[in-house]
């Protein structure tokens, strides 16, 4: 190999003129091989990997920030919700208390009126009953007084011709009998 090289000048065929700018075919072949290898490397392997990593990194940073923000917003919202619910619960408790109180007083008032109504009714009933009994008694007394008066009058008329002592004796005797009969009646 060394011999063949040192034989003559231009062993590698130095072109002149326009041939300087026209590549020999073997050169084109090997250049194409080299360039295609590099192109495949970048196209298929390096660029997709690095693009993916860059995207992941961006998404991580962006996502991290976004996630933090959304977590904070959620926390704020939860706090607001909690406070609102607490206030609501308190208000409702107050409302219930008020309602209970009102109902209690209403119930008491109701009971009172009912009691007074009952009392009035009982009273009325009693009075009516007394009235009725009084009338009944008056009726019966009226009848009896009439009979008694007639009876007394006859006895008096029967006895009037006798003397007045006898009169008083008759009357006393009559009153005793009356007392005894009413005591029996009673």
């Amino acid at each position: 190999m060394l011999h063949s090289v040192t034989i003559a000048a231009g062993e590698g065929e130095v072109p002149t003129g326009i041939w300087l700018f026209i590549p020999p075919d073997y050169d084109i072949l090997w250049s194409a091989v080299a360039l295609v290898a590099i192109a495949l490397l970048f196209w298929k392997k390096v660029l997709p990997t690095f693009t993916k990593i860059l995207d992941e990194r961006t998404e991580l940073i962006q996502g991290g920030i976004a996630k933090a923000e959304s977590a904070q917003a959620e926390a704020q919202e939860a706090l607001a919700e909690y406070t609102r619910q607490l206030a609501e619960a308190r208000a409702e408790a107050g409302r219930i208390r008020e309602a209970a109180r009102a109902e209690g007083s209403v119930i008491v008032a109701e009971l009172r009126t009912k009691a007074s109504e009952d009392a009035a009714r009982i009273l009325e009933n009693a009075q009516r009953q007394i009235e009725a009994e009084r009338q009944q008694a008056a009726q019966s007394l009226k009848a009896e007084v009439g009979a008694l008066a007639t009876d007394l009058a006859s006895r008096i008329v029967g006895e009037s011709l006798a003397d007045s002592a006898r009169q008083s004796r008759v009357i006393d005797r009559f009153l005793d009998e009356l007392e005894a009969s009413t005591a029996d009646q009673r």
């Binding site: 700018f21 590549p23 050169d27 194409a32 080299a34």
Partner: peptide
């Protein structure tokens, strides 16, 4: 040499 620049 001109091959590589020409291809590029």
């Amino acid at each position: 040499v001109v091959a590589v620049p020409m291809l590029l």
